[in-house]
């Protein structure tokens, strides 16, 4: 059965929800850093590009992205058939959905608390 774009993003989103602790760091800014970097790097890895790594934090995001890609290839194997452009679009939508859940629409009252 052919999956729609929404269904594909939903599958990726549910997988990240279940597996990845990096989306739920204590502070909003750390969540944004992780989600932006890891989804970008995962997209690059899925399309055969080596992500640029310059800082220790980026190295940590890379380690998380590599593992995410292993999981996606194993659980959402349809991604192997996608074009680089399609993968890029899917990862962008995944990023937006994660940012919405973990930051923008999050009900967690401590995300921007200075004393966290």
């Amino acid at each position: 059965m052919i999956k729609t774009q929404n269904e594909k993003v939903r599958e990726l989103f549910l997988y990240v929800q279940e597996r990845c602790l990096w989306q739920f760091f204590s502070r909003a800014r750390d969540r944004e850093t992780n989600i932006n970097a890891i989804t970008r790097m995962a997209g690059e890895l899925l399309t055969g590009t080596r992500p640029k790594i310059e800082t220790p934090i980026e190295k940590q995001c890379f380690a998380d992205a590599v593992e995410l890609v292993v999981g996606i290839k194993s659980h959402q194997s349809w991604i192997l058939e996608e074009s680089p452009e399609a993968i890029s679009g899917l990862m962008d939508e995944l990023k937006d959905e994660l940012l919405d859940l973990a930051v923008k629409s999050a009900k967690n009252g401590e995300l921007t608390w200075q004393a966290y």
Partner: peptide, 17 residues
């Protein structure tokens, strides 16, 4: 998590959960 966050902020050590 607090000390991991502070080590990241003050010393640049990344946090891998």
């Amino acid at each position: 998590g607090y000390i991991a966050n502070e080590l990241m902020k003050r010393y640049g050590i990344p946090r891998l959960d």
